[in-house]
Design a binder for these strands. Structure first.
Lengths: 260, 260
DNA sequence: GTCGGGTGCTGGTCTGACCAGCGAGCGGCT
DNA sequence: AGCCGCTCGCTGGTCAGACCAGCACCCGAC
């Protein structure tokens, strides 16, 4: 009886757990299930889908790995439907960089164009509140100048997050987060020279200040150019000539200057 | 006995299946496990990790959803380690667009900068073979002019894939694929007017021809500009004025013109 | 009225079973 | 001796049932 059900289900729609994953996934995509909603408990899902609890659990593990839901032990309300975030994208990207499928020049080049357009858009859309947040972040970074590079980098990332927030551009934000995070990962694993780090920090602070001015003035093109120029300055020495020339072209493309 | 082991394991590293997922994941990231390698069979993994088969299976389902491994029924060689691809990123992005978390203007704006830089890089790196492939694709698209829009779009996508290939930039290729695919999804669901479609097709062909010339000449900036200009032409009418102005700025940023 | 314990729910884990299907090895038949 | 066919053992897929820890509720005792 149950066997027959299992067989035919497998035949009809591949794996048993797949049926449930696909169903939940499409219901989330369709907006039928919204963040904050609750799925039925595992034992209720067993009844609903007519599959065994182990299959339900496999489905839940998959949905969890996609960051679509989260189960909490002993929560009578059932698995929670999560807001869709960049987390799975960042995770995949992290794997790509960790496995050296993606290397520094590619990351930096992509970051040049993404950061640039983020700045461009943020210059149009930023509110006074964003400017305040940026100023506060800059003050914080000045205070962290002599702390660890990791700590400083975190604040650096935050600066860009605020800009991404100001741009109000969800997709660019997600991609930007992922790329910046990956760049940082790679840099921290490869560039360790203490003097370099100090120079990086100082340049970061100067750069952020310039970007702030441009965004504050509503000068998008300038903010965009600054992003490309400074990324060139930071990383040009760490890539081979071929990639360096591409980076230079990306700078020139928007009217920027490459002075080494 | 086994209970104690299970408990302590859970306490030591959260979920039992997590231990296995993290281990396999890091071994793939480290290059310890390479594409084409085989994992031990489920029952061997049970012994190796000291967890129950159900937990092993949960771990395998997660690893499968990340496209890191694939299990085949009745395969005595065990789960296959896959090459790392963009598939999970595209899947996540597809969900973001399907759930309307990401909307057309954002996609198009991101595509403008990604396609542009792809073209820029491809103009430097393309080989004669790429040019041949592009010409062949253009011929095919001319032949598809009066076929379905879906069919035409597929060839359109292929044109960009060839360019991404020529750019030899894996990350840009992945992101570009994901974004272009998502744009197409959205467009096919929203823009249905037959005359529009015909106009789109003709413009696509003209545009591809111009891009081909630029890439063939090695004129990266021109190829980049063309990408932004044509995306503006295609989609400017389908977004609100605010987003249209941002698109216009993205075009002007690289010296392009907005006349449409 | 308050406090205590039972009771029932949750998710997390384990065990043991069965199925279909493939392949290897062994036995019987020619 | 050589070939054919069956059986057995392996695989992954699925299911059923059990136990645990911990939380929350309810009900009864004080």
């Amino acid at each position: 009886m149950t066997d027959t059900a299992g067989r035919s289900a497998a035949a009809a729609s591949d794996r048993a757990y797949r049926r449930m994953v696909d169903d939940i996934e499409s219901r989330i995509a369709a907006g039928d299930l919204r963040p904050g909603d609750r799925l039925p408990s595992e034992r209720e899902l067993v009844e609903h889908y007519g599959i065994a609890r182990s299959s339900v659990r496999e489905a839940l593990r998959v949905l969890e790995s996609l960051e679509l839901v989260r189960s909490a032990p002993r929560d009578p309300r059932g698995p929670l439907v999560l807001p869709i975030t960049s987390a799975p994208i960042r995770r995949s990207l992290g794997l790509l960089t960790a496995s050296r499928t993606i290397v520094l020049p590619e990351l930096v080049q992509l970051r040049m164009v993404i950061d640039a357009s983020t700045n461009l858009i943020a210059a149009r859309r930023r509110t006074p509140a964003h400017l305040v947040a940026l100023e506060r972040n800059m003050a914080r970074m000045r205070g962290l100048l002599h702390r660890s590079y990791a700590e400083f980098s975190l604040a650096d990332l935050e600066f860009h997050e605020i800009i991404a927030d100001a741009a109000g551009h969800e997709l660019v934000r997600l991609y930007g987060e992922a790329v910046r995070e990956a760049v940082l990962d790679l840099i921290q694993r490869t560039i360790l020279d203490a003097d370099d780090q100090e120079a990086h920090k100082l340049r970061s602070i100067r750069h952020h200040s310039a970007v702030f001015d441009a965004i504050s003035d509503g000068d998008g093109p300038a903010a965009s150019r600054l992003a490309r120029e400074s990324l060139y300055q930071y990383y040009a020495d760490h890539v081979d000539p071929e990639d360096r020339e591409i980076m230079a072209e990306l700078v020139r493309e928007c009217g920027g200057r490459v002075d080494g």
